[in-house]
Nucleic acid binder design. Structure first.
Lengths: 155, 155
DNA sequence: CCTATATCAGATCGACTGACATCT
DNA sequence: CAGATGTCAGTCTATCTGATATAG
């Protein structure tokens, strides 16, 4: 016996590390479920794709710039995200007639169907990740996390 | 005016994305402060270095394998972390006489001093990140996050 | 012989930067 | 002209895999 077997005292770990691991876990949960969807097979769907789909479903047609702002991702990375969704026939790029620099992104027929599956996937992933929390805590956790992110974005 | 300017409804975003952004924010806060420390200048100190220092300070001499388990990082990545800390003269690799495969990692004189600065850096970073939460919420958030990570590690 | 520890090389992926063409 | 939008190339970092040498 060398040193006391350090019983995973994660409560003493730096917050940065805990957040990184939680984000890795969440990503893995989403990716695993995306990989099991038969209609999404062979695709390159990522968590950000679900976010983009959700944006359009919730706000109606948006530009890529607007999606990047809502999701908090770099505009250059949104290009790939929309490419993937378009390759799956879930989303469509139309030029905005009022401002022809922008796209007016909207869901296809298949996109509106697929969105239901994506919501289910996201919900299942969240349920797995937040398993050790009760219903009240889950709500509180999500709220706090949301406040943290939005707070640091107004700079 | 094209579409309703979607006022950052981060509460509607996938949890995965929120966690990723929070972890990015936390990492940036720590890195920024590490870069300002004069004694750590030119080094490659990362958040994981603080975690490793904290482990040794809290549990006494450990092996790299043990640190990887506590921090939840891959053993192969710990090599670089300890390399950096050794280059800064903060930590020392000694062979464990009882099992010469292992190292018995311990803090140097300078390491015990520097550890205080690292704790301060981590605390300041946490304070900045959790700014929108009150004291009770911060405690709760940390506790929930800790439970989430530990829960998914026992598999 | 099989396992554990530490190490290294490389693959992969996400976040970010800078340059550019197009359009307002 | 300046500024906004989308696109592309490339960098940087973190994470993970596989192979190897050494020790139990």
């Amino acid at each position: 016996m060398v040193a006391a077997p350090p019983e995973l005292s994660a409560s003493a770990l730096p917050l940065s590390g805990l957040l990184t691991q939680a984000s890795t876990l969440a990503r893995a949960q989403v990716m695993e479920r995306l990989g099991q969807e038969p209609w999404a097979q062979g695709g390159n769907l990522r968590p950000a794709c679900i976010g983009a789909m959700h944006c359009i479903a919730a706000f109606g047609p948006l530009s890529q710039r607007q999606i990047s702002e809502v999701l908090g991702l770099d505009p250059s990375d949104i290009v790939t995200v929309i490419d993937i969704l378009e390759a799956h026939g879930l989303m469509e790029r139309r030029r905005d007639p009022a401002d022809r620099r922008r796209y007016s992104l909207l869901l296809t027929e298949k996109g509106r169907e697929g969105q239901k599956a994506l919501v289910r996937i996201a919900d299942e992933a969240v349920e797995t990740i937040l398993a050790p929390l009760d219903a009240v805590e889950r709500e509180a956790f999500r709220d706090m996390l949301s406040r943290i992110v939005t707070h640091h974005r107004q700079l």
